[in-house]
């Protein structure tokens, strides 16, 4: 029991360590404004990573989420710009835009899930394909440039990213709620147990009368919906989308999930671990920018080392169990 505790606490210890390191290196690190920045930035990857935790836990994978976010941001902006002359620059238009993002996310997730579960194509292949498709579509929609939200709507929409309750901005609040709901769903609902059961052995799950394909499909739809939600929070930040939006988000999300202790081969999901993983990745970035520790050329290397190290530590502990 004691060992398992240690193992569970691994990522948390790393997070606390990073906090202390950050505070020692630069006093500005602990300023509310900086922490608010870091948490709000984490929200996009965080929401996606919570969804990704379910997909990976059932033994799947989704490489298309970064491109999907860019595509959804693109169509959301285009929809709002197209509607503004008729519905006016008001919250109604923005709510429709949000609806487009959510509906688009659910639909995109459904397409991924249906191709994987109904057409029985490997998740890696399907989502590699849709990754390219979404990325090309947004570049094409933007005519190779950038899609920008009309400035009137943008002014109205902007507070969704930048305001909130004090320095706890809306993205942080949404991320916290989704994380708590995600953890609860994984631990305390039938859906969560089915996801874990399928990931550890899908045959046994099938013999136990679990509708394997349906649960799998639902994880992709859930992930798509969370990408939609991330898009809703992303668009007000810069009010634009282009072919370079959301590049490599999928790998950051997957890395966060793995750092958090979810097994890449499935069967064991830990949503709170994923949240810790997302925060670790954001903090590394922030601390490297604040501290001038190494040449900026090496930032990627430091992140790589920490990702591998986090997973190695967990492996050792698992074999000790």
């Amino acid at each position: 029991m004691k060992r398992i505790d240690l193992h569970l606490l691994g990522p948390l210890v790393a997070l606390v360590g990073l906090f202390i390191l950050g505070a020692l290196l630069n006093p500005a690190f602990l300023a509310p404004a900086n922490l608010s920045n870091v948490l709000a930035r984490s929200a996009f990857i965080g929401l996606i990573a919570v969804g990704m935790t379910f997909v990976i836990t059932q033994g799947g994978l989704d490489l298309s989420v970064g491109s999907m976010a860019a595509f959804l941001a693109g169509i959301t902006i285009m929809a709002m710009n197209a509607l503004a002359p008729f519905t006016g620059e008001n919250w109604g238009t923005i709510l429709i835009g949000m609806g487009v993002a959510m509906a688009g996310g659910v639909l995109a997730g459904f397409v991924n899930g249906a191709l994987i579960t109904r057409a029985r194509i490997e998740a890696f292949i399907v989502t590699l394909g849709t990754m390219g498709i979404f990325r090309s579509l947004v570049t094409w929609l933007a005519d190779g440039g950038t899609l920008s939200l009309d400035s009137g709507l943008r002014t109205l929409y902007r507070p969704v990213y930048f305001s909130g309750i004090g320095w706890i901005t809306w993205p942080i609040i949404v991320f916290a709620i989704v994380a708590i709901l995600g953890e609860w769903t994984m631990r305390h609902t039938r859906f969560g147990r089915h996801v874990e059961a399928i990931g550890s052995n899908d045959r046994v799950a099938r013999y136990s009368a679990v509708d394997v394909e349906r649960v799998r499909l639902m994880t992709y739809v859930l992930l798509g919906a969370l990408v939609g939600l991330a898009t809703i929070l992303y668009v007000p930040r810069l009010g634009s989308a282009s072919g370079s939006t959301g590049v490599l988000w999928e790998l950051e999300a997957i890395a966060a999930v793995i750092i958090g202790g979810t097994a890449l081969k499935g069967g064991r999901g830990r949503v709170w671990g994923t949240v810790v993983g997302v925060l670790i990745l954001s903090l590394i970035d922030n601390i490297l920018n604040l501290a001038d520790l190494v040449s900026p050329y090496l930032n990627g290397a430091i992140q790589g080392v920490i990702i591998v190290l986090a997973v190695v530590l967990q492996r050792e502990k698992r074999s000790a169990e």
């Binding site: 500005a28 930035r41 939006t245 920018n289 900026p296 050329y297």
Partner: peptide, 21 residues
């Protein structure tokens, strides 16, 4: 001097950190 990679989102993050620092 830090790398914003000619990218809006990266530049946003780097500038936030400059402003904090």
């Amino acid at each position: 001097m830090q790398h914003g990679n000619w990218n809006r989102d990266d530049a946003f993050k780097v500038m936030q950190d400059y402003l904090a620092k």
